[in-house]
Design a binder for these strands. Structure first.
Lengths: 339, 339
DNA sequence: CTGAAAGCGCTTACAG
DNA sequence: CTGAAAGCGCTTACAG
């Protein structure tokens, strides 16, 4: 049982391939009667045009590529889910590739996708990406590019992000309102915009509430791992006993902090409150449960696809493309670790 | 900058398209000198043949489809990672689709992949799949199918699995050796083979160690969620105070159990020991950390791809396909929840 | 309103 | 050893 071809339908219905093709695509110069016949038969036989053959003519592959920094990462899985669902609605297939947070691999994956003639690329940049010429190249080739979550300000393309600075501000403000005055920050790596923005939100909250910024209370998590969170928390217990709250750039280091505090029998939040960022599943399951910022991953993926699709339609109609910068809302989730 | 075509290389080197194509594919009837010229130029220009055009002749799309029951699920992400890495080595692209544990959606996704001319399908069946004709159809169409993790005994295809019964046996044996005598089991849904096998492993351990099986100590987690684990643990505390250990079909219900015991200040493992299954990241991060069975997700994905690739090569050479049943090893991870 | 024909970029059987 | 030509399954400009 091979997939049905236009030729098969044509000979079955005693029509030409041309007419069948046009009927299926609703060309105005085909009689309604013929259209009806063809469509009904195609429907019955579950005919789908061979996308590879179609591509050769239309240069549209009906495939998009997605490049994310990590595959086995809850937040990105959520985004992928949103992308795949949105893509399904427009009969798009999704090829997923990972940069493993490596700049070189990111370049390579982008090139692989170009070679495979994807209609567009949705991408979240790797932490180590310092140069964006592989992305500018996409813009030049007029391949729609949408960046999500982790983006670069240097690339002129549409983006779907959250307001990291604002969300971080609210997270720290929450700690301050709970009476905390000596707040440490586990920040992310130096390069990515969102770890910078979360750090800036942290600083702005200190400023606005008249708390002094101490750079020795800022710890850099290059891996954004629970191990780093654990280690820095031990350091805090040893060398900075005055610290009464931790705001982490992500849930993983926050979970590491909680693990460390539990191990040392330090009461949370009485002695040290902990605030995460992302609202991974784990944050509600650990004891005590972790207060955090909820990021709408699936929605982010969905929006990213929708923008790509809009840009593609405009490109086909030769409408000049206006890049969009979409900022999604985040929610502060209060749980036991700060209450 | 469009992708380079054979025509471009041919005109650049004053050769025919035919010769260029043959040179690149190492046909014996092209002179070494020409081959060298062509290959060097192609290398320099980073030429990759357009896979869509190639497909039309060879019927090979260089794309495989993967269908998993859930996208944002740590274990499956791990498998996907293994698949993508292995696929990359053979220049294969991976299209990922989700069945969301729904039989209908699984059928639909398999059909979408066939329509898109994938060279093969790697699949883990949905919990609700009760009929496998959509899979038998693949075999009939000679589209290689490899099932991983969750498989059906009714489909004649290669599989990559773990020995669930044996792993479950060892998990329960571990609890028994720690002195537990009244062991509850949070089992998975009734249909999937691996929840059946884990249940059978549980029973066999009881039998071999002379413990009585009590069906009122078996609780079914249809969603395999932490919420179910939490709820059943409350029920145990209320109605079955003699229970001194829980063996859960997966980490999530086990984590729910720990959450519940923590909330009620029940000491773990002194009063109740808890054993999970899968070794998700979360299991080492909660307090107390969770003893569990480590499943090699990434390796499972890798093997699944490799088997598909082998079958495809054999199919091309018209070698009859021998299906392989691969069983990967699991490890028992002892952590605080049983020690 | 319908259809013959060209062409997308490859591969490969065939001719020279 | 090299190349002209056919053909994979579509789409679409063109002819009638």
């Amino acid at each position: 049982m091979k997939n049905l071809r236009l030729t098969d339908i044509a000979s079955e219905l005693n029509l030409s391939v041309t007419t069948v093709s046009k009927a299926l695509k609703n060309y105005p110069d085909v009689s309604n009667k013929t259209k009806k016949r063809v469509k009904e038969y195609a429907q019955k036989m579950n005919f789908k045009p061979n996308s590879f053959a179609a591509y050769l003519r239309t240069q549209e592959s009906k495939i998009i590529g997605v490049v994310i920094p990590r595959l086995n990462h809850f937040f990105f899985s959520d985004i992928i889910k949103g992308i795949i669902k949105a893509a399904e609605k427009e009969s798009y297939m999704v090829i997923v590739l990972s940069s493993e947070e490596s700049y070189e691999l990111e370049c390579k994956q982008v090139n692989r996708l170009i070679q495979h003639n994807v209609d567009g690329i949705l991408l979240s940049i790797a932490d180590s990406t310092h140069d964006v010429s592989h992305l500018s190249q996409l813009i030049e080739q007029k391949i729609p590019l949408v960046m999500f979550d982790k983006y670069s300000k240097l690339t002129t393309c549409s983006t779907v992000v959250i307001n990291d600075q604002d969300a971080a501000f609210r997270a720290v403000e929450h700690l301050i309102k709970k009476g905390r005055r000596n707040i440490a920050h586990f920040r992310g790596p130096l390069l990515p915009q969102n770890s910078i923005d979360r750090f800036l939100g942290f600083r702005r909250a200190l400023d606005e509430y008249g708390l002094k910024y101490r750079k020795e209370w800022v710890f850099t998590c290059d891996e954004i791992s629970s191990e780093e969170g654990y280690r820095y928390t031990e350091e805090i217990l040893k060398s900075h006993p005055e610290i009464d709250a931790i705001f982490a750039v992500a849930d993983m280091p926050a979970v590491g902090a909680i693990k460390c505090l539990n191990t040392h029998n330090i009461p949370i939040p009485e002695r040290i409150a902990v605030m995460g960022f992302s609202n991974w599943k784990i944050s509600e399951l650990i004891t005590p449960s972790l207060s955090t910022i909820d990021q709408p991953g699936s929605l982010m993926g969905q929006k990213a696809f929708e923008i790509f699709y809009e840009e593609l339609q405009n490109k086909k109609k030769n409408i000049p493309i206006k890049h969009q910068q979409i900022t999604l809302n985040t929610d502060l989730i209060e749980r036991e670790s700060t209450n």
